[in-house]
């Protein structure tokens, strides 16, 4: 298995190199430049030229790319154009914020969606099923920006139970950290619950029709045992793929949620650095997001072998 993991990681490297080239080219296609944005309406020729030279933007673009590649190979990823901070610690710090919200939210969504989907499938076309599906559709149709603001208004403004702004890292202070995580986790989970419930329901429906389920029932197994032991394990596969995709895309930045709850996450960092044309930060962050996809996909593939004994690594 370790050989397989190593092989997959090595296979990821060319992907990441390609991402690096594309990202570098794309961010430079955006009109405008950081020097202009920092000087704003006060920019004149001298100050613009001086600022560009200071930021290394007066170098030819291919040379800038090589310098950046050199920075990556040295594990430095360069420095932010706007704040001068080292890119790698910045993006890792921001990523950990996003990760703590996303992991909790996806876990919470799974814990609700898996049983809800199974139950809806078991009682297909009955009132309970319609109720669950309706709730799921409502949950996934609500824009997360709106959900976030409504939570802020209810728990922050009206009830005054939870803080509306700020963030405390779980490593700094577990109790307060959790307090700041409640609303973003709920807001994010609400949307994902809908998606996952529908997925779980439809794959469970397929499994429920299969003969071994009838067989299990005929054996006299309780309905609960049938659902958890047979239906869930077999229906989990497709949901797992979807879960992986959801996880990867959220880890790449839950930008809207981060913005509403003023969380210093990776999504907000990416958006801010696009606005500021902070090339090094943007490039570093996008490369990180690409790596997250590679890793999450790998983990999902490995999980298949755990959940489904039919899948073997050869």
């Amino acid at each position: 298995m370790w050989l397989y993991v190593l092989k997959r990681i090595l296979m990821g490297l060319p992907t990441l190199f390609l991402v690096a080239v594309i990202v570098f080219a794309l961010v430079r296609l955006i009109p405008g430049d950081p020097a202009q944005l920092m000087l704003g309406d006060l920019a004149d020729e001298q100050s613009l030229a001086a600022m560009r030279a200071r930021l290394g933007l007066d170098q030819p673009i291919p040379l800038q790319f090589l310098i950046w590649l050199g920075d990556i190979l040295r594990g430095e990823f360069g420095h932010s154009i706007r704040t001068g901070e080292a890119v790698l610690p910045t993006i890792m710090g921001r990523f950990s914020v996003t990760a703590s919200v996303v992991v909790f939210a996806v876990l919470a969504a799974m814990l609700v969606a898996a049983p809800a989907g199974l139950i809806a499938a078991r009682f297909q076309n009955r009132r309970l099923d319609f109720g669950i599906i309706l709730t799921a559709i409502i949950s996934l149709s609500m824009p997360s920006f709106w959900v976030g603001l409504m939570l802020l208004l209810l728990f922050g403004v009206t009830l005054g139970w939870l803080p509306t702004i700020g963030y405390v890292g779980l490593d700094e202070d577990l109790g307060r950290g959790l307090l700041y995580l409640i609303m973003p986790v709920v807001a994010l989970a609400l949307t994902e619950i809908g998606v996952l419930t529908r997925m779980m329901r439809s794959s469970a429906l397929e499994v429920l029709r299969l003969e071994y389920v009838t067989h299990a029932r005929a054996k006299g197994l309780s309905e609960g045992a049938v659902l958890t032991r047979h239906v869930f394990r077999n229906a989990a596969g497709p949901s797992l793929t979807l879960l992986g995709l959801i996880l990867a895309s959220l880890l790449g930045g839950a930008t809207v949620t981060e913005t509403v709850f003023s969380l210093p996450g990776i999504g907000k960092l990416i958006v801010d650095s696009i606005y500021a044309r902070d090339y090094p930060v943007l490039q570093g962050a996008l490369l990180l997001v690409a790596s997250v996809y590679v890793i999450v996909n790998l983990v999902v593939d490995l999980l298949y072998t755990v959940l489904d004994p039919r899948v073997r690594l050869s």
Binding site: G156, T164, T259, V260
Partner: peptide, 14 residues
């Protein structure tokens, strides 16, 4: 940076 967030935080007393 977000106006709606700022307003909510102000109304909440934060």
């Amino acid at each position: 940076p977000e106006a709606a967030v700022k307003k909510t935080a102000f109304l909440a007393g934060d």
